[in-house]
Simulated scan of single mutants.
Amino acid sequence: MKLSYNEATAANCSSLEKDLVLCEENGFDYIEMRGDMLLDYLMGHPAAVLKDFFGNSHLQPHAMNALYTYADMFHPQRANTSRDRALCAYFLACCETAYKIGGHYFIVVPHLLDDSGNIYLPHDPNTMPYPYDKEKVMEDSVRILRKLAAMAEQYEMNLAWEPVGSMGCAVRTARDAMEIIDATGCGNVGITLDPFNLYLDGKRNDFSDLARIPKEKIFAVHINNCDPLPLGTLDHCHRRFVDEGEIDLHNYLENIKKTGYDGMVSIETFRPEYYEMTPEDVIRTAYVTTKALVEGRL
């Protein structure tokens, strides 16, 4: 498996410009760029500079992170037009840059119950279950993914649908995500697997269902662990590096390997404690611990 770095891990203490240099120096194979950090970068650098960097680097771009959808997105009567315009402008700008630099994946997240209006990082407050039934979730998700997939084709972009197991997410399990992916009928729609997101569904540490996913539909694999906290308290800020925590990452990786998948494994955390560190320390620790896990030394 190839080692990848997700920029959320040091997002509040670093920048894309710093992350590129540090990921290259530490030996990462791929970087997952955050869209908001990419836009910040593009305000000071043309995309050609980014293309030149990857053209002369071992480090390569992987998935763009992320497009956060909502239930009525692209609905002919109920869509929030201004929100759709903002989401599509962001999506298309990132797709265009990714096309220029050789990136071919975009993480897409199902609807999270969130009232912040933050298109870059909405959040499930985890205070109530998702209110819509499975039939509506299927209808909404398929509509959204088909529309995005058609837009993405011109950029040779693949959409990586990422289930989140918290109670206020529209799609909580890998099984449900795959049912939606299959229903789209789109060859450029696959799945993102994330152990913390899957663990949020009842603190489940049995990942055996992942072994049944066709490897060609696994577009991105994240890795992380978390603090020993009860559901309802456990949140994305409690993600941590992979050298300790409550999630059975060996079970997780073993079942993914059973599919034949041997692509990227990307460390992704949102831990405020890490944002108090230097990006040099964050990225070095992220690489060392992730490499040890993937190589079976943890």
Rank of each mutant, 00 (worst) to 15 (best):
Tyr5Cys: 04
Asn6Tyr: 02
Thr9Phe: 03
Asn12Arg: 14
Asn12Thr: 09
Glu24Gln: 13
Asn26Gln: 15
Asn26Ala: 04
Asn26Trp: 03
Asp29Ile: 11
Asp29Met: 12
Asp29Val: 11
Met33Leu: 14
Arg34Phe: 01
Gly35Thr: 13
Asp36Ala: 05
Ala47Phe: 06
Gly55Phe: 03
Asn56His: 15
Ser57Glu: 02
Gln60Thr: 07
Met64Glu: 02
Asn65Gln: 12
Ala71Met: 14
Phe74Cys: 09
Pro76Tyr: 13
Arg85Gln: 13
Ala86Asp: 13
Ala86Gly: 05
Cys88Ser: 12
Ala89Ser: 11
Tyr90Ser: 03
Leu92Tyr: 10
Cys95Asp: 05
Glu96Cys: 00
Glu96Gln: 14
Ile107Val: 14
Leu112Arg: 07
Asn118Tyr: 06
Met128His: 11
Met128Asn: 10
Asp133Ala: 14
Val137Asn: 14
Asp140Ile: 01
Ser141His: 07
Val142Ser: 12
Ala152Lys: 04
Glu156Pro: 00
Asn158Cys: 10
Gly165Ile: 05
Ala174Arg: 09
Glu179Asp: 13
Ala183Cys: 01
Thr184Phe: 07
Gly187Ala: 10
Gly190Met: 12
Ile191Thr: 08
Asn197Trp: 04
Asn197Ser: 02
Asp201Tyr: 15
Asp201Pro: 00
Asp206Tyr: 06
Asp206Ser: 08
Asp206Thr: 04
Ile213Ser: 10
Ile213Trp: 06
Ile213His: 00
Ile213Asn: 07
Pro214Val: 03
Phe219Cys: 01
His222Asp: 09
Ile223Asp: 02
Pro228Trp: 03
His236Ala: 05
Cys237Lys: 10
Arg240Asp: 12
Phe241Asp: 07
Glu244Asn: 08
Gly245Phe: 04
Glu246Trp: 05
His250Arg: 14
Thr259Met: 11
Tyr261Leu: 05
Gly263Ile: 03
Ser266Ile: 00
Phe270Gln: 05
Pro272Asp: 04
Thr278Pro: 00
Asp281Cys: 01
Ile283Asp: 03
Tyr287Glu: 09
Val288Asn: 08
Val294Glu: 10
Val294Gly: 02
Arg297Trp: 05
